[in-house]
Write a protein that binds this DNA or RNA. Structure first.
Length: 896
RNA sequence: UGGGGUGUAGCUCAGUUGGUUAGAGCGCCACGUUGACAUCGUGGAGGUCAGCAGUUCGAAUCUGCUCAUCCCAACCA
């Protein structure tokens, strides 16, 4: 224990978050308090930070995410664990390339003009600037990350690992190159995975077009939302059992506008009810048509260029973008009388998640990863509970997705990312896939090799994050100590993108799950429940919040609201409320320190003699233990809001509202040994309180801690208080002391209530008589006379059974079998009407309650079936209530 | 169409295995600066627990149905 001089124990008048936060964070970081040992006698605890993108800045989602992780890490660190919280950033291929391209556009240039090399230089410059900025912002949250181990997804080591994984998977036949229909973003000019497509409902039209038979013997009508794709039609399909089209099957159609001949085929996929019951088939531009094209061996005609314009297959329409082509095709169809009708039609259209453009199904040669063999073990670990999802209903969502998993298109036609380690030969068709740049073709030994231009999907490297951050594929101590990590904390929006893939990759390459628990929190919405987005202008910058309210207030707000995976609404009011909480704690600490000015720290383990301890002293120690227990259990179950709320109500409504008020007459009083005992309880309690608070509000707690008379050097390295520790100290408190305080509090509240309801000003001191019904009550009230007088603002307190009741307010009080009456003479103070009103109200309430219980007790079935203690309780209550009714009726009678 | 949430005070949400009078924060009303704090204190008002039916001595809690609302997935020629 450390004891400081008086001067250093003072806290400034006002808490200044920004000054304190930057000073303390710097101190913590430079002292190496965030650093984890590669191996240690302490048990390990490890969390990998979901790496933020280097695109821009932190948003509230990060703030939430980090508040949770930092709370866990600080709690575990204080609980004696060797804690590694591993930071890093993500290159975020598409996202970062997009923002840089946007910037270039504003500067009047573009990536194609710059060329690959120059463009990448620009992106790296961007990364330097924003990558650092985002780390600075993360520091401002107070996140206790081991910065010495920071990793970036394009670091050399990580890149090597990514390449190795690609090569291994290729050699095992799990990665293959193939020409298939994929999602294509014509704005990015790149392939996308299924997950990167966002479906939105769009109001469009459905066009009915007449398709004549080639032999002139008739025609049928097809319905389509995309008439321009008819340029790529290679069949018309009808249902085999559809009577209307029976005779058409097998015949040829002369496609309008081009006059190309296509067949009418029969396929059960066709819905007879929809549209005309005849479907145009465009295998190269629709996923269903693609499947049908394969089934019927149809021709695949690609009508698009990479930029979304129509290609040379389209004759006079060549060069037009899809929208314009559609317009022209319709005009031409109408002019040539092929257009039958147009109807409005709402349907969902895939959009590129990043660029916003319409996604085209596009026939293209890409790299794919076979997922089925990876998915199977990933399903098993979720089923067996080796990986636990919290809340657990996400397990179902996860399994469902894995069950229906499709191969993953991993190549992107971008420049920013991990280049695909594949080389093509100019002489033969052989593809050389290798970790190192090959000298010759693996097939024909030719020397003219070109590396694949494409890069890998960002998530391809992200899936390896839990072990590439630890230096894999090299074996090392770090991985032995910390892999598998303990818990992944993330939003449920990336459960497929990231969580599922990490599990598959971890099992594949490390032979073990990457984390034991997946904690999925909800997303942050604005106060109206809308998603936060830049376009809506409702997104909140956490740094601005921190500047206005302090990091602690922000953290506490988020932590006190996060529960059971639900989305949470962010409100200014809550933030203010919690800023006020910080203020409350600050002031409570200031007051505490002023009370402890002349306090001398006794030896370790010293316990004051019980005669010197007040009821409040024993009570607050008891409540401290209760609160510690609650917080500890809540944290173990990841119920952060429960933990935050428990500590909040303890700090404010028990410690501040009652304890600090209660001890005032003692610490300002004459009895030196009582004062000393109380000072010790106060010093110990505030010490435990700030330790308890630290994982939630690290800055203000550490700042206060540094001024406390009883403390160690650093709060964040001190131990986390739990009832299992310091049993000798906590034994001061007891259930009995809680009971005693409850009674005292009830008496005080009763007098305050009489004062308030009768509009007696707080400045007016009252006389009161407390009439205990037995010795126990008598003793308790007497022992706490000073506190009652002070907190109820009395000038006189008589404790006696007998006394006048005339013109007196009377309130019965009962606590666990102890009964007493609180009597306040009102003569000359008030108009009695108010008191009559008050008494009537109380009486009504008590009668109602009594009636309810009587009714239950008179029910034979209840007496027969209910457990004995429930029945007993009811009987006891009826007795108490009846006594109270009598007292209240008497009081009321005397006023009439 | 399928899957999953949610519906409790004016607002945001707690409410464990059914069991006293359903809680908190903010907001609201009244009074107030008493030697930490007006970012405060004391007192108070405010709820048919979405609706209906059922199980039970007893339901916010369990079951079924209905309504509202949100998210995810699929289909959409």
């Amino acid at each position: 224990m450390t004891s400081d001089s008086k001067e250093s124990r003072e806290l400034s008048d006002r808490y200044n978050p920004s000054e304190v936060e930057s000073r303390l964070y710097k101190w913590w970081e430079e002292s190496g308090f965030f650093h984890a040992e590669e191996s240690s006698t302490k048990p390990p605890f490890c969390i990998i930070l979901p790496p933020p993108n280097v695109t821009g800045h932190l948003h509230l989602g990060h703030a939430l995410n980090q508040s949770v992780m930092d709370c866990l890490c600080r709690w575990k660190r204080m609980s004696g664990y060797n804690v590694l919280w591993l930071p890093g950033t993500d290159h975020a291929g598409i996202a970062t390339q997009s923002v840089v391209e946007k910037k270039l556009l504003e500067e009047g240039t573009n990536r194609k003009d710059l060329g690959r090399e120059k463009f990448l230089e620009q992106v790296w410059a961007w990364k330097e600037q924003y990558g650092n900025r985002i780390c600075e912002q993360t520091r401002r949250m107070g996140s206790s990350l081991d910065w010495e181990r920071q990793v970036f997804t394009l670091d050399e080591g990580v890149s090597k690992a990514v390449t190795k994984v690609f090569v291994d998977l290729y050699k095992q036949g799990l990665i293959y190159r193939g020409t298939r229909l994929i999602n294509w973003s014509s704005k990015l000019e790149s392939a996308l995975s299924d997950l990167e497509v966002e479906y939105k409902d769009v109001k469009g039209s459905i066009w009915h077009i007449r398709y004549p038979l080639a032999d002139g013997s008739g025609s049928l009508v097809v319905a389509t939302t995309r008439p321009e794709t008819m340029l790529g039609d290679t069949a018309v399909a009808v249902h085999p059992l559809d009577e209307r089209y029976k005779d058409f099957i097998g015949k040829e159609i002369a496609l309008p506008l081009t006059n190309r001949k296509i067949k009418v085929i029969a396929d059960e996929y066709v819905d007879r009810e929809f549209g005309s019951g005849a479907v145009k088939i465009t295998p190269a531009h629709d996923f269903n048509d693609y499947e049908m094209g394969k089934r019927h061996n149809l021709q695949f005609i690609n009508i698009l260029n990479r930029d979304g314009s129509l290609n040379e297959q389209c004759g006079e329409y060549q060069g037009l973008k899809v929208n314009l082509a559609r317009k022209k095709v319709i005009e031409d169809l109408e002019a040539k009388k092929f257009l039958v009708k147009v109807e409005p039609h709402q349907h969902s259209v895939g959009h590129c998640e990043k660029s916003g453009c319409v996604v085209e199904p596009f026939l293209s040669e890409q790299w794919f990863l076979k997922m089925q063999t990876l998915a199977d073990p990933a399903m098993r670990v979720a089923e067996s509970g080796t990986v636990k999802f919290e809340p657990e209903n996400w397990t179902k969502t996860y399994l469902h997705w894995l069950h229906n998993i499709q191969d993953w298109c991993v190549s992107r036609q971008l420049w920013w990312g991990h280049r695909i380690p594949a080389w093509y030969c100019d002489n033969c068709d052989f593809i050389t896939v290798s970790e190192k740049s090959p000298k010759e073709c693996g097939g024909c030994k030719g020397k003219n090799l070109r590396q694949d231009e494409d890069v890998l999907d960002t998530w391809f490297s992200s899936q390896l994050w839990p072990f590439t951050t630890m230096g894999w594929p090299e074996e090392n101590e770090l991985q032995k100590t910390f892999y598998p990590t303990d818990i992944l904390v993330t939003g449920h929006d990336i459960i497929f993108f990231w969580v599922a893939r990490m599990i598959m990759a971890g099992l594949k390459f490390k032979g073990d799950v990457p984390f034991r628990t997946v904690y999925l929190h909800g997303l942050i919405r604005d106060s109206q429940g809308r998603k936060m987005s830049k376009s809506l202008g409702n997104s909140v910058d956490p740094v601005e919040v921190i500047e206005g309210y302090g990091a602690d207030a922000l953290r506490f707000t988020l932590l006190s609201q996060i529960a059971s995976g639900r989305d949470l609404k962010f409100s200014q009011q809550r933030l203010e409320g919690n800023r006020n909480f910080m203020n409350k704690i600050w002031n409570a600490a200031r007051f505490t320190l002023s009370v402890l000015e002349d306090f001398e720290v006794p030896e370790d383990g010293y316990i004051p003699s019980s005669s010197d301890l007040s009821a409040a002293d024993r009570w607050i120690v008891y409540k401290t233990g209760k609160c510690e227990d609650e917080v500890h259990k809540a944290l173990q179950n990841h119920r952060f809001s429960d933990a935050a709320n428990a500590v909040y109500s303890f700090a404010w409504h028990e410690f501040c509202d009652w304890y600090l008020e209660f001890i005032k007459p003692i610490v300002y009083g004459e009895n030196a040994s009582e004062k000393k005992a109380t000072q010790l309880v106060l010093a110990q309690t505030i010490n435990r309180l700030v330790r308890l608070l630290h994982p939630f509000i690290p800055f203000i707690s550490e700042e206060i801690y540094q001024k406390l008379p009883i403390r160690k050097d650093v709060l964040m390295l001190d131990s986390y208080p739990t009832p299992s520790k310091d049993k000798a100290w906590l034994a001061i408190g007891s259930e009995q002391s809680a009971l005693e305080m409850d009674l005292v509090r009830e008496v005080i509240t009763a007098i305050r209530n009489i004062r308030g309801e009768n509009r007696i000003k707080p400045g007016v001191k009252l006389k009161s008589r407390v009439a205990p019904k037995d010795d126990k009550g008598q003793k308790i009230v007497s022992a706490n006379r000073n506190a009652i007088m002070s907190l109820a603002r009395l000038e006189q307190l008589d404790i006696q059974q007998e006394g006048s009741l005339a013109k007196c307010a009377v309130t019965p009080v009962s606590i666990s079998g102890i009964h007493l009456e609180v009597v306040v003479p009102l003569e000359g103070l008030v108009d009695f009407d108010e008191e009559i009103k008050r008494l009537t109200k109380v009486l009504d309430k008590v009668r109602k309650e009594s009636a309810g219980i009587s009714k239950r007790l008179s029910n034979e079935n209840f007496l027969k079936n209910a457990p004995e203690d429930v029945v007993e309780l009811g009987k006891k209550q009826i007795d108490e209530l009846s006594a109270q009714i009598k007292v209240l009726e008497g009081a009321l009678e005397r006023f009439r």
